[in-house]
Computed example of a mutant assay.
Amino acid sequence: MLLQTCGLHAGYDRFKALFGVDIAVEPGECVAIIGANGAGKSTLMRAISGVLRSAPDMVLHRGVPIGHLPAPQVMQRGIAMVPEGRRLFPSLSVEENLLIGAQMRRGTGPWALESVYELFPILRERRASPGTALSGGQQQMVAIGRALMSNPDLLLCDEISLGLAPVVIRDIYAALPRIRATGAAVVVVEQDITQALTVADRVYCLMEGRVTLTGRPGDLSRAAIHDAYFGGHA
């Protein structure tokens, strides 16, 4: 197993946001995490990526406990996150933002400036522009490219479609198969249930910090997803 969380508890100071969460990600697969606002989706991503610490054995990467590791060490192991809100460096150009990701590169791999520009050609055209001078969709492409520059085997995407136009969302999600073709697994956090079911091999639904449903999209009824998402029949 590439990644496992085992009874994961996490939160902020005295506020607990996750209560015994178990998920698993196999090499090369796409897993979607769905749930309403406040379900704990972003907290889960932060705990996996090392932004939030947990007990060591609550997060396993290739069987090795990493729950206690800080984010830079987690990234060096091969887990990169595209954070909600993109968080580009406003004083840096597109290319300089991408090169930040390369500083955490682990050995050789498929991703470098040229391959990122092939994935998102508009970034080559805007390479000298300030990152924050781009449209929201282009900024999201920079954030994804920055994460890929570290050559991860697991890419965590936290709300990558949030606030973007449908045509832009389509273009960004069209890049996922090419990312997975390099052998990387992808975890996508989504509020858009339809989008999540379209791209995922498996889905986990969170509600109030707990897993309420898991399965393959084709095996899950809309009614079951609705109940897991909202907590019962309307």
Rank of each mutant, 00 (worst) to 15 (best):
V82P: 09
G163F: 13
R87S: 13
R124H: 12
A24T: 11
P27Y: 10
G109D: 12
G131T: 04
N97C: 04
G20F: 13
A175L: 08
A165I: 01
A39F: 08
L98D: 06
Y229V: 02
T5A: 03
E84T: 05
G131P: 02
W111P: 11
A200E: 06
V142Y: 05
L113T: 14
P130G: 07
R106H: 14
T212R: 11
H233F: 13
R146V: 07
A196I: 00
P121M: 11
G40M: 09
A32S: 12
T214V: 06
A223S: 09
A175M: 10
E29Y: 03
L154W: 06
P110N: 14
G40R: 09
R87F: 14
V59C: 01
I23W: 02
A224P: 04
M75P: 09
E96Y: 08
I33Q: 02
G218H: 03
P110S: 14
R216M: 11
L92H: 09
G232I: 00
T5P: 05
R202K: 00
Q103G: 15
A143F: 00
R106P: 11
M104I: 15
V116T: 08
V186F: 02
R170V: 04
R210K: 00
S42E: 08
Q4W: 03
I122R: 15
T108E: 14
R86E: 09
E118V: 14
V59L: 01
A10F: 01
P90N: 10
I66A: 04
G38D: 13
H9E: 11
R14L: 14
E95F: 03
S221K: 09
V189G: 00
M58A: 14
R77C: 05
A143I: 03
K16V: 10
P166K: 07
R87A: 14
L206F: 08
R46L: 03
T194S: 12
I34G: 02
M58G: 06
P166V: 06
P27T: 06
E208C: 00
R126N: 05
G63M: 13
L69H: 03
A147L: 08
